[in-house]
């Protein structure tokens, strides 16, 4: 009887242990395609537009650093991957020029990196945004529309892309061997998660491909601000985002 009970307990625990094993995700590698992949990464703000400023720390500097981490990670994901930054330095670039660059290169995905500011200091965590038109039109446009609303044609894919990034930002990952943490520890980010927003975002207006804004954290929250200022932590955050993007591209292409 006792043996039977132990067997039953073992059977009940088996799915749980399998789930636990699955929740640690190994790195996504070898992104190979026949046509190549173009990824455009947009470090928000820059030049005279410093973005959010909290205690002398500018959003524009964090987004540029984060974008460079992401670019390096994406370029290692496969030899057919072309990564373009909308700015490489502290320069002013208009939203139209940023998006125009992505459209001209027929990018497969467009990632705009921001740091958030919420009036509520207790508000913490990353947040995904995609271009949602319902607040403007009450639905998808039926025919030719103005330039800014083109992303509505990619709404479903943008939502899917946001979902992948969100999933990997909250997942426990096995880091790559050459990552900052040495590759032998499971990596779970301490970042919280805030609900995604569908909105008419200037950074996404005119994007003719799946596109998302990633708000890395709330600069008005002490913990988030400490993460964003810490290069090691920023590198880890971008590693999680890279994994989400590569997984999306692998499944979608």
């Amino acid at each position: 009887m006792k043996t039977n009970n132990m067997l039953l307990a073992a059977l009940l625990l088996l799915p749980a242990s399998l789930f636990a094993a699955q929740s640690t995700i190994p790195p996504v590698t070898d992104l190979q395609t026949t046509a190549g992949v173009v990824v455009v990464i947009d470090p928000a703000h820059g030049g005279g537009d410093r973005g959010v400023n909290v205690k002398g720390i500018n959003e524009k500097d964090i987004t540029l650093k984060a974008a460079k981490y992401l670019k390096a990670g994406m370029e290692k994901a496969g030899k057919d991957v072309t990564v373009i930054l909308t700015r490489n330095a502290d320069t002013t670039v208009s939203p139209e020029d940023r998006v125009g660059r992505a459209n001209n290169h027929r990018a497969d995905i467009y990632i705009s990196i921001h740091c958030d500011y919420s009036v509520n200091e207790s508000d913490s965590g990353f947040r995904l945004c995609y271009y949602g038109g319902e607040k403007i039109f009450g639905g998808k446009p039926q025919q030719a529309v103005e330039w800014s609303t083109v992303p509505l044609y990619h709404l479903d894919e943008s939502v899917k892309l946001a979902g992948f990034v969100e999933r990997y930002l909250t997942a426990t990952l096995i880091p790559e061997s050459n990552s900052v943490d040495g590759g032998d520890k499971n990596d779970t980010l301490p970042l919280g998660k805030r609900s995604p927003l569908a909105l008419a975002h200037l950074s996404l207006a005119g994007t003719d491909m799946p596109a998302v804004v990633i708000e890395l954290g709330n600069m008005n929250n002490r913990d988030d601000m400490n993460y964003l200022r810490d290069d090691r932590m920023l590198s880890r955050i971008m590693y999680h985002i890279k994994e989400g993007l590569v997984r999306y591209l692998k499944e979608g292409l």
Binding site: E134, I136, A200, H201, L202
Partner: peptide, 18 residues
């Protein structure tokens, strides 16, 4: 165009029912 580069203000806005 926007307050500080994020939410587009040039359109007719509807309520946020999300």
């Amino acid at each position: 165009k926007s307050l500080a580069g994020h939410i587009m203000l040039e359109s007719i806005l509807k309520p946020d029912t999300d």
